[in-house]
Each structure stands twice: as C-alpha cells, then as structure tokens.
Computed example of a mutant assay.
Amino acid sequence: MTWDVALILGIDGLANGAVYLLAGLGLVLIFSVTRVVFVPFGDVAAFAALTLAAFETGRTPPTIGLVLTLALLATLTEVGSLVRRGEYARIPKAVLAWGLVPAVPCLLAWLAARAGMPAVLQIAASVLLVVPIAPLLARVVFQPIADASVLVLLIVSLALHFLLSGLGLLFFGPEGSRTQPLASGMLTLGDGFTVSGQVILMVTSALVLSGLFFLVFERTVAGKALRATAVNRVGARLVGIRPARTAMLAYGCASLLAGLIGILIAPVTTMYYDSGFIIGLKAFVAAIIGGLVSYPMTAVGALAVGLVESFASFWSGALKDVIVFSLLIPVLMLRSFLAAHVEEDEEELDQ
C-alpha cells in the first residue's frame, strides 16, 4: 500500500465516519433518554434516501402512505388509551397531534411532487417527511412498554426493524435507487490529489450538525430537559419535566438526523428498502465504543469504524463488515474488565 492509496482510503474513511457519527449521536440520544436501542434508525435514513430518489424521478414518494399509516395507528393507540382512562375531552387534541400534524409534511411532499419543485425544496420535503416516523413508532410500540427492561426493549426494537423492512418492501418495492450528487466539483490538494465535493459536504455537514447538537444541549431549555431526563428520570419528573414528552423530542431529533443521513449517502451508494440495517449496525458499534452514554467517545468510535471499514475494504472487500463488527469484541472485553462488579451475598443468591 502506497501513501497515495492510504490517503485516499483515509479520506473515504472520514466520509464514512461522518455518517456513522451522526447516526451514533442519534442512537445515544434515544438510548440515554428512553433506554431503547433504536434499531430502525437506519431504516428511517434509507426511507429518506428513497424519498428523494422518488422526487427526482417525478414520482409521488411512497413514504407518504407509510407515514399516514403510522399516523393512523398512533392516533388509534392514543385515542384508545384516553378512552380507557375516561379522558374524553383530550381526544380532539390527540387526533390533532398524532393524526393531523404528521399529515402536514405528507401534504407538502405531495405538493412538491406535483409541482416539480427545485432540488433544495425536494431535499427539505424528503427530510420533513421522515421526521414523524420515529415518534409515531415510539407512540405505537415503545411508549406502552416504556418501563420494560432494556433487553425486552431491544428485542422489540429488533422486531420493529423487520416489520419496517417488510413495510419498506411493500411501499418502495425491491428496486434500488441512487440520487444526483448534492455537491459537484473537486478540491485539489498537493501533488494532484483531489477530494470530491460530495465527501467535503458529508464531513462538513457532520461537523456543523454536531456543533448544533452541542449548542442545543447546552443553550436551550429543550436540550437541558433532554439532559436532565437522561441523567435522572425521577428527578426530572420531580422538577416538572415530563419524560414521555422528552422521549418524543428525542425520537424527533433522531429522526431528523436519520433523514439528513439518508440525503447525504443517497448520491454515493445505491439504497434499497433494507439498506438501513447495516448503517444502523455500524453506528451501533460506534455507540458501544462510547458506552451508549458518551457523545465525544461515540464520535471517536464513529471515526474509528469509518477508517477501519475503509482500510478493510482495501484488504478484503468480502470481509470488511466482519472486521468492523469484530471491533465489538475487544471493546466489550475492555469495558467488562474496567467496569465495577458487585458481588451478591450468598443469602441473596439462595433467595
């Protein structure tokens, strides 16, 4: 391997790491607030990419039907819960929040497809269209079992991924799609080495969004509410913060990140209805490196995963995923070694 090849692989690794960084931040955000390992995160990103591809081909995005279906299920779930508790006065508000509000981006996307909007508006419509997906899924699936164990939530999340894959096949079909590049041109470095505008856009977007993520957490009331819920749910509830509401905010922010990820990767890889699983799984590796709690360590882990994947693809394209996922083994062993283990008393074991 020459230095030129290593530099090319390093740039590609940074681009991949930028995507995994954003995905890892979304996974850590949801887990820290709700204790849910949100496996379908990558599916939301894939749906955003397929939505933009549908716009570019002049078709009405099938995502509209998917979102409306989820909105109907969420509305029925919320209304049923209110009826069981006898809170009939809150039913109109529930229908508005879970039925009509998610329909607004669907209407905007339908109008954008009909009118042949510019590319910028198509991108905005694609992102907005997938933002309600995670909150709607959370209301239907996770909120009723919010107090379950982490293992149960993980199993349900994994089952939800397979359900979304089936819905993706139903709505989008088996064909793959790739969108037009978001940025053209090249940046020439020393000795004639060039970096594509798409790669620069991916890395820059990751840096900017990470910075905005930090500012939201540090400077806004909503960000502080998310941090408080992540640190201590009971304490947050005692000071007037509703964990259920912050959970929905976390799902919404993560869904927004997933939509942006889908837009960024759509021009560089062919996306299928089930392409999101591998993206989410590699982001999960990065999140595990960060312990599912540390955002800076998750960022470091994402860059490590991206670089390892890039160099592994050079050595063996067939084994690159195996090499990436093998990173989990030493990380888990190290965390197990460093973690404080509490021995139970013999009496407790007998009981």
Rank of each mutant, 00 (worst) to 15 (best):
F41T: 08
V293N: 10
Q143E: 10
K320F: 10
A254D: 02
L332G: 09
T179K: 06
A15C: 08
L96Q: 06
L327F: 02
V131P: 07
K224Q: 14
L21S: 08
S326V: 05
T51E: 04
V140I: 14
V234L: 14
S126W: 02
V231D: 15
V28W: 00
Q351I: 15
G166R: 06
S81E: 04
F162H: 10
V322P: 13
A283G: 14
V19S: 09
R233M: 12
T75E: 07
G65Q: 02
V305D: 03
R227N: 11
G65H: 04
G17C: 06
F311V: 11
Q180E: 13
L212N: 01
S326Y: 09
L27C: 03
T34D: 07
A287L: 07
G235K: 07
A299K: 02
P92D: 01
V101A: 08
G291K: 00
P132Q: 01
L281S: 13
A18E: 03
I30L: 02
G240R: 05
A299Y: 02
T51C: 10
A46K: 00
T60A: 13
S316K: 05
A148P: 04
T194Y: 06
R237P: 12
G223M: 07
W98D: 07
L264A: 14
G306S: 11
S294M: 01
L215G: 10
L96H: 07
L215R: 01
G58R: 04
L170M: 14
E56R: 03
P181R: 07
A312G: 09
L189C: 11
L22A: 06
S126H: 00
S149D: 11
A339R: 15
E175M: 10
F284K: 02
L226F: 07
R35F: 03
V141W: 02
A134G: 02
A97K: 12
G24I: 06
V44P: 08
E346A: 13
L73F: 12
F41R: 08
A94N: 03
P105S: 07
R114Y: 11
V199N: 13
S205I: 00
D4F: 09
P243Y: 03
L29E: 01
C253V: 15
L100M: 12
V324I: 06
W110Q: 03
L328M: 15
A134I: 02
S255K: 04
L215V: 09
